[in-house]
Design a protein around this nucleic acid. Structure first.
Lengths: 300, 300
DNA sequence: TACTAGGTATAGGCTTTATCTATGGAACTC
DNA sequence: GAGTTCCATAGATAAAGCCTATACCTAGTA
């Protein structure tokens, strides 16, 4: 049984004639005849009585016809369900973001995105990198904004920006106000760091390692605002990415010259995944905003 | 979109793998891959994400899948609706019969038929030939039992029996008790005849014409029982087919030797029509019973 | 790193089949 | 009785489905 055959049956039932049905179906009459015969053979039942000039449904035909119509309607429903889904601006997107980016970027992303897609359902998950990677894999989140390095080959990343890392020093620190600073200059200082699990902690420690420093960690916190507060209180020094630099905190910031003192933010997704309209749009917003930011910074 | 493609999609969704789906569908994996790709192209949407080893439905796929399953179920429903209809012993049959046969044969037919098909719905229409022919054409009746001649090329007839015609004479008629009689012997007698419209009236008049008689019609009635009663009362003579011969009536019967004095009963149906199980069974019962009757009459 | 295994996409050939044109045959019309 | 209409049949052609072989990719492993 083929869908074409069902279309032909319906056409014959509607027009009451093989010839007119063939015309409506845009095929030659013998082709339609053959397909009807083939279907009848397949079903082992005649569907039409050929009574000279007129064609009439047999009882089997009357039993079959509503099902045939139903199948064809269903096929159209299947087709349009996909089309609607493809264009649906009410789709949903789940975005993961690490805590050391979330407060600085997500408000801007979501505001811009919601302007254009007010009907979309958006879910934001703030968690650390391993949880987000897992989320991408099990598709509980669609996109993630996080920092390199990422050594998962099943993920696809789009670079968003690379930002310098700044040393955060108490205002009364001897090096406060320096034009330039490297980690080597901070050897032996007590460090305030993010808690274990934060990728920026790993980045910081890796940068220290490159500078042959084993940091002496005096305090740990889960967020930069606490870190900066502790630095301002003189507990130690720290490193923060540019976006976390807060002039309101009682710290001095100096850009670190170390090659490793850079953080690259990326938009990550599962390699090979397909996205809906809303998900693609969110990704577009994020990349466009970061592109604009680079442009704004470099031009003036 | 083809039904095969829908089967493949369901198989992939069920097994989570193109290879296993191909195995289940009894085809080579590339063939299945091609068909899925073709469908995706047709729908202009990816249905599956190929993520290395595992396959997952996209959102479009999730939207599409239930419709695909529904279509396939519907196709099966269509197929089985025909199969059930073909085998349904609860089908219906409408049988037309002319009044000059009905009382003599229908009781036997229906009794035998109902024995085997107690669940069938049977409708019996007793009317004269033109109405029955019209009924066959508009399919308000499926089969008709009537007498030749029938010169409608759109009808198909199966002969059931050919019976002699008897002269019915009052018991005190001079020719009553004759071994042999022809219409010529009855020239000038007053005739009792069926009313206009009955085909046996036409047959009777045609037989008279062949014998060069223009019957003088003294009385007309709608049924043989009245005819015979009038004959017995001496109103006139008449002609009746063998099955109408009633020893209980006050008549003498003598077989007419005229070549035209014969009635052929047939089972008629619309040429090219298709019958359900019950209709075929009724036709079988009728022909079998008439065949048996001929056999019973000829053998002893 | 290289190699194997598991899985999908691509390429090329073969076979089936849906469609076409031309024609036959039956029934209806003028 | 010729012409028309309509469905079925026959033979040819072109498309499409399926096959085998193979390339390609990822993941796991020596």
């Amino acid at each position: 049984m083929e869908l074409q055959q069902l279309r032909y049956v319906c056409a014959v039932a509607d027009t009451g004639s093989f010839s007119r049905a063939a015309e409506r179906c845009q095929i030659a009459q013998p082709s339609l005849s053959q397909q009807i015969l083939k279907l009848e053979e397949d079903l082992d039942a005649k569907l039409f009585d050929r009574l000279g000039r007129s064609i009439r449904l047999t009882e089997a035909g009357r039993a079959f016809l509503p099902h045939a119509r139903s199948v064809l309607q269903n096929v159209e429903a299947a087709r349009s369900s996909v089309a609607v889904q493809q264009l649906d601006v009410r789709g949903s997107v789940a975005v993961g973001v690490i805590p050391t980016i979330a407060p600085y970027r997500m408000p801007g992303y979501t505001a811009r995105f919601t302007e254009k897609f007010s009907q979309a359902r958006m879910r934001i998950v703030e968690d650390m990198t391993p949880a987000l990677v897992e989320g991408l894999r099990d598709q509980s989140i669609d996109l993630a904004i996080l920092a390199l390095p990422l050594r998962h080959k099943d993920l696809e990343v789009i670079p968003l920006c690379t930002e310098p890392v700044f040393a955060a020093l108490p205002r009364d620190h001897p090096r406060a106000g320096s034009d330039s600073l490297s980690l080597n200059d901070l050897r032996g200082e007590p460090f305030v760091m993010l808690r274990d699990g934060h990728c920026f902690r790993d980045l910081s420690i890796a940068a220290c390692s490159s500078a042959r420093i084993t940091p002496n960690i005096a305090f740990e916190s889960g967020q930069f605002s606490s870190v900066l507060a502790m630095v301002g209180a003189g507990v130690g020094i720290s490193m923060v990415p540019e976006m976390a630099v807060d002039p309101g905190a009682a710290c001095c910031y100096t850009r670190l010259s170390d090659a490793r003192a850079r953080r690259t933010i990326v938009l990550a997704s599962l390699r090979g995944r397909t996205f809906n309209l809303v998900q693609n749009a969110f990704a577009d917003v994020v990349t466009a905003m970061e592109h604009t930011r680079r442009h704004d910074l470099s031009s003036p």
